[in-house]
């Protein structure tokens, strides 16, 4: 055989690796497709107007998830409202004010640690910190999620602060603006997209969270009003899914909730991609 350019061993290696890679990508893709289709097929037929617009009643044996939807929105809004100023403020401190390298490293290490702590531990600590003093309620759940999402908002804001050109700041300083004025008029407007990205990521995490809410926000399914209802317990969609599936065996309702959660996840991912793309575009300008 004249020109056998590759030894058999190398050829086999190449073929093997190629097959393994394609197989892995195939498995991943199949998993996503299966989960998506299975949940939607099982869940969408169970989503009825009655389910969405009523609260559950033992008398008429009706199951409605309106309270759970509302509770999810309340917790989402409350947590974002509290975590936003804290996270953005922390990020501004880190990238604009901090001069002590050691302190900076400490804060960043703390944020890393926070993002690695599993939600069940947040749930426990939230129970000890908040629920023991104010009772099991939506507010306690929201405050727990604030701690959980602090690093998300911080990191997203920090990333976007890095893209505000140094020359803008210097220009403003050169015109005689003070530090706070520069932050307020030049730096903050420049990091809006980072804050939005952070919000979207945090919203995704809050929507999907269940372990941290189980012992802090409770299981109740009554419609609560704003803002007084924040002191009462309430289940979010994820907690309701867990209760309906695991404790009551109502799989139809559970799948309906799962399908709603799936839609929301898709929506949030879509929004995050759009914002990030705009962000990239601006960075390349």
């Amino acid at each position: 055989m004249p020109h056998q350019s590759l030894s058999r061993k190398r050829k086999n290696y190449e073929a093997l690796m190629k097959v393994l890679m394609l197989l892995s990508v195939g498995i991943t893709a199949a998993l996503v497709l299966f989960l998506l289709i299975y949940v939607l097929v099982k869940g969408v037929p169970n989503i009825t107007w009655e389910l969405l617009s009523t609260s559950p009643s033992y008398l008429t044996e009706r199951i409605g998830i309106l309270p759970d939807i509302l509770n999810t929105l309340y917790i989402l809004l409350l947590s974002l409202l509290i975590v936003l100023p804290l996270g953005v403020g922390a990020a501004i401190y880190l990238s604009e004010y901090a001069s002590n390298k050691k302190l900076l490293a400490l804060i960043e290490y703390a944020a890393e640690t926070l993002s690695g702590i599993p939600s069940i531990i947040y749930g426990l600590v939230g129970m000890l910190l908040f629920s023991n003093s104010m009772g099991t309620c939506l507010m306690a759940g929201a405050l727990t999620l604030v701690i959980m999402n602090l690093p998300t908002i911080m990191r997203a804001t920090q990333e976007s602060l890095k893209t505000v050109p140094q020359s803008y700041r210097e220009g403003a300083f050169g015109l005689g603006a003070g530090k706070w004025r520069v932050v307020r008029t030049v730096v903050l407007p420049g990091c809006v997209d980072g804050v939005i990205t952070g919000c979207i990521l945090a919203a995704g995490r809050i929507l999907g969270e269940s372990a941290a809410l189980l012992f802090t926000a409770g299981f109740a399914h009554t419609v609560l009003s704003f803002p007084l209802g924040m002191k009462s317990p309430g289940a979010t969609l994820t907690v309701a899914l867990y209760v309906y599936a695991k404790e009551q065996g109502e799989f139809g309702v559970a799948f309906a909730i799962a399908a709603i959660l799936m839609f929301m996840t898709i929506l949030i991912n879509f929004a995050a991609t759009i914002v990030q793309n705009r962000f990239e575009k601006r960075k390349s300008l």
Partner: peptide, 18 residues
């Protein structure tokens, strides 16, 4: 990459249910 992000975003209770 979007598919993988979706996989990452699915709440854990949904994994549990399926």
């Amino acid at each position: 990459q979007s598919a993988v992000s979706l996989l990452a975003g699915i709440p854990s209770v949904v994994y549990g249910l399926v």
